Computed example of a mutant assay.
Amino acid sequence: MVDFEVVSLPATDHVAEGDRAPDFTRPLVNAEFWEDASLSDLTADGPVCLVFFPMNGSFPATYIWKELRDRELDDHLTVVGVSVSTPYAHKRLIEDREMDFELFSDPANGVAEAYGVTHDLDGMAGVSEARPATFLIDGDRTVRYAWVAAEWPDFPPYDDLEREIRALAD
C-alpha cells in the first residue's frame, strides 16, 4: 500500500526542447571535493543530461540516482544533478550511494527557478525544491529532450531518457 498521497503539480512554463538551456555557476560536488563550475563548462566537453531532483534524503532522490547508476548512462555523456542540498549533503549522498555522478548544489533553488521546475513544499512558506526533471543538452546548450514531473512523486521515463541519450551520443 502507498503511504503517501500522489498530488498533481501545477502546470509550469519550463525550458523546452529547442530552447537554449540557461547557463549557471554553482558548486559542483564529487566524491573528493567541490568547486564552482558552470553548465557551459560541462557542455564544452559534449552533451549533458541535467537531472533535477528533490533534496537528498528523500526517497525520490535515492530512487532516481539508483536507476540512473544502474543504467550506466554516463558512459554516453555527462550526467549531472541539481538540487537544493548543500555540498556536504551531496558529498555524503555520493559516498553512501557509491555514485560516479557529480551534483550541483543550489540551496536557493535559483537554477530550478530559471528552468521553470520549482516545487513549493506544502505547509512551508518560502521553502521550495526542484521537482524531478531531466534535460538533455547538446554542446551548444540547445535542449534536445525535456521531461518535467506533472505530479508528486513522479519519476523520469527512464526507457525514453535512455533512448534519447543514446541517440544524442551517437
Rank of each mutant, 00 (worst) to 15 (best):
A130M: 11
A61N: 08
F24G: 05
E98F: 03
D122R: 12
F53L: 10
M99Y: 11
L136A: 01
V80L: 06
S128M: 13
A133C: 09
A125S: 15
A16E: 14
L50Q: 03
R20F: 15
K66N: 07
G123A: 10
Y88V: 12
L28E: 01
D74G: 07
D19V: 13
A61E: 04
E129M: 14
S128K: 14
S58K: 02
A16W: 04
V29W: 02
D74W: 00
T134V: 15
G126P: 07
D70Y: 03
G18Q: 12
T118N: 11
T43C: 03
D120Q: 14
N56V: 15
P27S: 11
T118P: 06
G46D: 00
D140R: 10
L68I: 13
T78K: 11
P27Y: 09
E67Q: 13
L50A: 04
K91E: 13
L28R: 01
M55C: 06
V82W: 00
V80N: 00
A89C: 04
T62P: 00
F135H: 03
E72T: 05
G116Y: 08
V51K: 00
L103M: 15
D120I: 07
F53E: 06
G18E: 12
V29Q: 01
F33R: 15
G57L: 09
V79Y: 00
W34Q: 13
D138C: 06
L42I: 07
H14P: 08
C49I: 13
V127P: 11
L50R: 00
E113L: 11
L28W: 01
L103R: 04
V15N: 05
A89F: 09
H90S: 05
L68D: 01
G110K: 14
T12W: 07
D23W: 10
R97E: 13
F104Y: 13
L136T: 00
D45E: 15
G81D: 02
R20A: 15
D106F: 04
A89Y: 05
D106W: 04
V117K: 03
W65R: 04
G116K: 08
A112T: 07
P107L: 09
P27V: 10
M55F: 11
R131H: 05
F101N: 01
R141W: 02
V117Q: 03
A112S: 12
P132W: 01
P27C: 09
A108D: 15
P22W: 06
S85Q: 09
E72V: 03
L103H: 09
D122I: 08
A125H: 12
A37G: 07
E67A: 12
A61D: 05
M99G: 03
R71K: 10
D36V: 11
A31N: 12
A61K: 00
E113W: 05
T25P: 08
I64G: 01
G110R: 14
G126Q: 12
G110P: 03
V111P: 01
A108R: 14
E102P: 06
A114G: 11
F101W: 07
T25S: 15
V51G: 02
S128H: 12
A89P: 04
E67V: 12
D74Y: 01
V117A: 09
E67W: 02
